[in-house]
């Protein structure tokens, strides 16, 4: 990618400490970058550290009991080093995040309108009247009918899909340069999901926002992301451009994820191939590959030294990867 990247995350680790218990490394040496107008995907199952990564970028993790290591650089500024008030200026204006559950991210006792205009008056210095007009316009753009009525309503009066759209409207209010969408459609029905994803695509295409999409749904990633990072137990295990990852998954975990979901467009009758065990069956990265206990390709070399993430274009953390189906296309760089 020749474009200048907007956000660089280098060797990010997040360690949760609790008295009387061993430290938990939720994120363990994660690196990636996003450029303006680019969409990257962080994919993984619950507990793989994808949401903690996003909270670390936004500086939303609690100070006590949490240690954040590594570098997070946004447009030349080191985010973790920023004092709280400076960070607050960036957050909401240049950086925005949309969470999974719109009911817990919206304040239930404050009308929608106030929650959307708050961002506008604070960060863009608009007057109340102007902010109100702008807010109505934002709601209209995210596909909420009758916006001026909706602005007066409270979150409980809106349907789930509409709430999520209102939340996205708030996130978009200042035309952020980086948007993190953490499972933005998981709580929604598929027809509403399609609307929201379309909206995010338009946003990236029109205003050049950099988008980090966090999801467990490989289908969503397939249609949205330029580059996909697959996470397992706090580390990136495979990273590749979208077409390459889906056509030629090399890490047994990626391959296993793809084989375990039924596809609507494939003939039924074939048995699904689940991944053995559960995400609980991991070993710490310090004693080998965390996926080894569940891995069908496990060999002796998997322990006790964890493999590194190798490869520039198609990164892979595995000593015994799946065989490439398409060796001829791999040899020719596109």
């Amino acid at each position: 990618m020749t474009r200048e990247s907007l956000l660089d995350v280098e060797d990010l680790s997040v360690v949760f400490r609790q008295r009387g218990r061993a430290d938990v490394r939720a994120v363990d040496g994660v690196s990636f970058s996003v450029s303006p107008g680019e969409t990257i995907g962080l994919v993984g199952e619950s507990g793989c550290g994808k949401s903690v990564t996003s909270l670390a970028i936004m500086g939303l993790l609690p100070k006590r009991g949490v240690r954040v290591e590594g570098r997070i650089t946004f447009d030349g500024t080191e985010l973790p080093a920023l004092p709280a008030d400076k960070l607050r200026l960036l957050r909401g204006r240049d950086l925005a995040i949309v969470f999974q559950d719109p009911m817990t991210s919206l304040n239930p006792v404050v009308p929608i309108g106030t929650q959307v205009t708050e961002v506008l008056t604070r960060h863009r210095g608009l007057g109340n009247g102007e902010a109100r007009e702008e807010a109505a316009d934002l709601l209209r753009r995210v596909g909420i009918p009758d916006p001026s009525r909706r602005l007066r309503e409270y979150p409980h009066q809106l349907s789930g899909g509409m709430r999520q759209r209102a939340l996205i409207a708030t996130a978009l209010a200042c035309r952020p340069r980086l948007l993190i969408a953490d499972e933005p459609t998981t709580a929604l029905d598929v027809t509403i999901q399609a609307q929201i994803l379309e909206l995010l695509k338009t946003l990236v295409a029109e205003s050049g926002t950099a988008l980090i999409l966090i999801t467990h749904d490989l289908g969503v990633v397939a249609g949205m992301c330029d580059t996909v990072h697959v996470m397992y137990a706090g580390r990136i295990v495979e990273r590749a451009p979208r077409h390459e990852l889906f056509a030629d998954p090399r890490h047994p975990y990626t391959g296993g994820l793809l084989a375990s979901v039924p596809r609507l467009d494939q003939p039924r009758g074939a048995r699904l191939e689940p991944i053995e065990g559960s995400p609980r069956d991991t070993i710490p990265w310090t004693s080998g590959c965390a996926f080894a206990p569940r891995c069908p390709n496990r060999i002796e070399e998997c322990t006790p030294v964890a493999p590194d993430l190798l490869g520039d274009r198609h990164g892979l953390r595995c000593v015994n990867p799946l065989r490439s189906d398409r060796p001829e296309t791999k040899a020719v760089p596109r």
């Binding site: 349907s159 027809t191 399609a194 397939a222 249609g223 889906f246 609507l264």
Partner: peptide, 27 residues
């Protein structure tokens, strides 16, 4: 038809060729 077209398929090649029929409004 709309429901089926809205379901993402984990294959970028398929996703790019598909036609999505978006429903407007809520239930």
């Amino acid at each position: 038809i709309a429901l089926m077209s809205a379901i993402p398929i984990p294959d970028p090649e398929v996703e790019e060729r598909r036609r999505r029929i978006l429903l407007t409004g809520d239930l």
